[in-house]
């Protein structure tokens, strides 16, 4: 995948307050088996990804935030475009890292989203704009 590709991450409604997404949204929970699910931003845009997630998949999402492949790789995370369970699915693999390191990475990814909101990464800015 290209380093600049934006990975779109859904944010649960309770994980957004006053326009801020928690770092918990960037850390795999128990059901994720160490792999964070995202949409490949080069195959689907933020609004379509949100519609797919909330209607086809039937899950809750307040909106979508974006991080780039290069930002994940800087955090020593493997990015896997597996296309399962849907074609645009990309997994961000945290399994090489323990809980303390995961916490650090989650905060870094959260900060990346905040910087995109300033428009430094146009595609992620679009992702933010649908909130």
């Amino acid at each position: 995948m290209k380093a600049a590709t934006v990975l779109l991450r859904q944010v649960h409604p309770t994980w957004m307050q006053d326009g801020v997404a928690t770092s918990l949204a960037f850390k795999p929970s128990k059901k994720d088996s160490g792999v964070l699910s995202t949409y490949n931003g080069s195959k689907i845009d933020a609004a379509a990804a949100w519609r797919h997630y909330t209607t086809k998949m039937g899950f809750g999402s307040h909106g979508v935030v974006g991080v780039s492949v290069s930002e994940c790789e800087e955090c020593e995370l493997k990015v896997i475009a597996d296309g399962i369970p849907y074609e645009e699915h990309v997994g961000i693999d945290f399994n090489a890292h323990g809980s303390s390191r995961r916490e650090k990475i989650a905060k870094k990814l959260q900060a990346s989203v905040a910087s995109h909101a300033d428009g430094t990464l146009s595609r992620a800015f679009l992702a933010r704009a649908i909130f």
């Binding site: 309770t14 994980w15 307050q17 006053d18 801020v20 928690t22 770092s23 918990l24 929970s29 128990k30 916490e103 905060k107 959260q110 900060a111 905040a114």
Partner: peptide, 23 residues
């Protein structure tokens, strides 16, 4: 702080105090 529920039933408080990110 911004406050969020954790999957384990705790409450997370977060403070963005650049350059610090505190939880």
């Amino acid at each position: 702080p911004h406050l969020f529920p954790t999957p384990e039933g705790a409450v997370r408080g977060e403070w963005q105090l650049a350059p610090w990110s505190v939880s």
